[in-house]
Amino acid sequence: MIPLLLGISLISFWIMQLAPGDYFSTMELNPEISRETLDRMREEFHLDKPAFFVSIDTDDGWSIGFHWDNQYINWLGEVIAPEFDTLVGIPIIRPRLNFGYSFKYHVPIIELIAERLWNTLQLSVAAILLAWILAIPIGIYSAVHPYTRADKLFSFCAFFGMSVPGFFLAFLLLYVASVTGWFPIGGLQSINYDSLSPLGQLWDRLHHLMIPTLVLGTGSMAGLVRLMRGNMLETLRAEFVTTARAKGLAEHVVVYKHALRNAINPFITIFGYQLSTVFSGAAITEIITAWPGLGRLMLDAVISQDLFLVMGNLLMGSVLLVFGNLSADILLALSDPRIRHE
């Protein structure tokens, strides 16, 4: 796992360097900021050092330089440097985990991520819940009653949900909200949030959560419905289902105990994968609905080349992806005895 994360960090650092210029390039066209000031700003974040191990200089012919004292090593050093600490009174050595400062905010990366983490979590959990709670029953219903009117209606809705781009749906819902006044237009809470009663505050938050949840949930729900229906249809045609029916088992036992447990496997893998997206946020939906989440922060960071912020965010996403896959494997083993026995 550690080599995997190292590899990810190395490659993403390299890719970030491929873009021309750096965070401070934008300021070079400001007539009121001098070169000297820019150089000092770059120095403050070690950007005056070579970016990577190898540099190719084409100014006068071709020359290749090797650098040990580079930006990547400086950054990595601060992350993995050993630090003495105590854990419940026992002295331990842990990595320093200093992800550096954001160029733009002059604030530690960890703090920037932390203050948006909870908002992103709320939105993605709500969207995942909405998607899964609706998608699985609808998928099962469609598979058990294939080619009925209800199935066709659900299929139509699912294809519609898959085809409508999220940003378009978001604008559409916000437009409806502004015309009808049923929903607040973007944001996490109202301006007068602090003067509301606790119950009012809860309602205010839920009210603001509705549009972004619907936008995010619709896309993944549509895909899940189709997948559930397909898997379930296939399993219901399998021979062991026929056997179960032939044994005279009740239809709901056949469907829910035998067929469903076999059809659900791919979903556990998908679930593990979705765990990693819980914290990555949905930049476009967050921007349109003014939701203060991580996706927006990350997109801005990438566009403005706020290097360490991007790296911190990527690394966190990678850790979650690795853990998500691990937990999916464990869940899969729990649900499917065949995998356990291997």
Binding site: F171, L174, Y175, A177, S178, G181, I185, G186, G187, I191, I287, I288, T289, A290, P292, R296
Partner: peptide
Amino acid sequence: VVVPNQEVELLKFQA
């Protein structure tokens, strides 16, 4: 209030 999108800003003004 922080509103990243100008269309949404306009909707908020009209609302």
